[in-house]
């Protein structure tokens, strides 16, 4: 894997991250925001994995797998929280959610 290939991976990772950021910043719903966050995380994981492949060093890929696992846990917990809140208040909008929290 040479530098040219790495560049494409990095472009794609940047696209993923940017898409995540865009989703986080534009969508009102908490679910979408969570999806956006996942996109950003995946972008970052892709960067970890690609550099690890480029350097012939497995530490980055190991770290990426750890991150994915932790992210799964975190997403499941976050979804659970959101669902509970939605059940209780019928609110999924982030801004309204702030007021609910109070």
């Amino acid at each position: 894997m040479n530098e040219e290939h790495l560049t494409y991976y990095l472009y794609f990772a940047a696209f993923l991250f940017s898409s995540g950021v865009f989703v986080v910043l534009t969508k009102r719903s908490a679910i979408f925001v969570l999806i956006g966050v996942e996109l950003m995380l995946n972008g970052a994981n892709l960067v970890l994995a690609s550099f690890s492949q480029y350097d012939h060093d497995m530490k980055g890929q190991i770290f990426a797998i750890f991150a994915i696992v932790i992210t799964v846990c975190e997403v499941s917990i976050a979804l659970a929280i959101l669902l509970n809140i939605y059940r209780k208040t019928r609110v999924s909008n982030l801004d309204e959610l702030r007021e609910v929290g109070n």
């Binding site: 950021v21 986080v24 910043l25 534009t26 009102r28 982030l94 801004d95 702030r98």
Partner: peptide, 11 residues
């Protein structure tokens, strides 16, 4: 403004 604008400016 709302939280997303704040995030935007943070970015």
């Amino acid at each position: 403004r709302d939280i997303q604008t704040q995030l935007t400016w943070l970015l």
